[in-house]
């Protein structure tokens, strides 16, 4: 990887090592997110997928390695990056409404101590409309279904109006309507030249939803365009020889191949 690509890539991770206590979670990871692509990070449970995102964002300390966003360290590129944490990471009984959660995406632009004004609430409302929750703006967030909560998080990321979106399991346990809504939003973001990186757990949908994929199991086993990288061989290297998974994966690979033929 040469220096120019490091300066232009939305996200470039080099030799990243992360450990909890003395347990290594991410080991020597190299990861690139190319501009304007939808990128999936997949791998078995405990492979360090979320950790890779969190360490990139300085949320947890890395033992070593370098991370560049558009060629800059994270704290200088904050305004170009939006992060969507896992839905389970927050307390949905918290006394706050959907539109107030979405408005949090505007806080950085507001700055310290400046209050949320009417126009910010209108911007947040517009983001909620985009994810199909226009009628739910004033709902307390515990009164939303799991899928609706996930869409609130997505709307909040949209309100941030970033160039790179990092999403931790946005498709985890959501209903079909939400899944469709998220996919549409991701495609719209791509059409506008944005880059999206998703931690993803559902192998069969990888070829359908994503352009690029990184296979992670502590280290990055393989990464690149889905058609080249998402192969049974690579998945076996990532997941080990677990049968059901591999069957699932084989089907997904087959579908990816058909889709690729279809395109060309």
């Amino acid at each position: 990887m040469n220096a120019t690509s490091l300066e232009t890539l939305p996200l470039a991770v080099r030799d990243l090592n992360v450990a909890y206590q003395s347990k290594v979670v991410v080991w020597d990871a190299d990861f690139d997110a190319p501009a304007g692509k939808l990128v999936a990070i997949v791998g078995p449970n405990g492979a360090g997928k979320s950790t890779l995102l969190k360490a990139s964002l300085d949320l947890i300390p890395a033992a070593s390695g370098s991370v560049r966003f558009f060629g800059l360290p994270y704290r200088k590129a904050r305004h170009r990056v939006a992060y969507v944490p896992q839905r389970e990471s927050v307390d949905w009984d918290f006394p706050v409404s959907a539109v107030e959660v979405v408005a949090m995406g505007l806080y950085r632009r507001l700055g310290w101590c400046m209050p949320v004004r009417h126009k910010h609430r209108e911007m947040a409302r517009a983001a909620l409309v985009k994810v199909g929750l226009g009628d739910f703006a004033t709902r307390q967030i515990s009164q939303l279904s799991g899928g609706q909560q996930q869409r609130v998080f997505l709307a909040r990321a949209l309100a941030q109006d970033a160039d790179l979106y990092l999403m931790d399991e946005p498709f985890a346990s959501v209903d079909a309507a939400t899944e469709r809504a998220i996919v549409e939003v991701l495609r719209e973001l791509r059409a506008r030249g944005k880059t999206v990186v998703c931690v993803h757990h559902d192998l069969p949908t990888v070829p359908e939803y994503f352009d690029h994929v990184a296979l992670l199991n502590m280290r990055v086993v393989a990464q690149g365009p889905v058609a080249e990288i998402f192969t049974t061989e690579n998945l076996r290297k990532t997941y080990g020889a677990r049968l059901t998974l591999l069957e699932e994966a084989a089907q997904a690979v087959e579908r990816a191949r058909v889709a690729a033929q279809h395109r060309s």
Partner: peptide, 22 residues
Amino acid sequence: LLFYKELRIAAFDPALATTLGF
């Protein structure tokens, strides 16, 4: 009153707050 929004986001979603610079 001054830190209403900061206290709220730090309590609700500390990870997001931190990535936003709060």
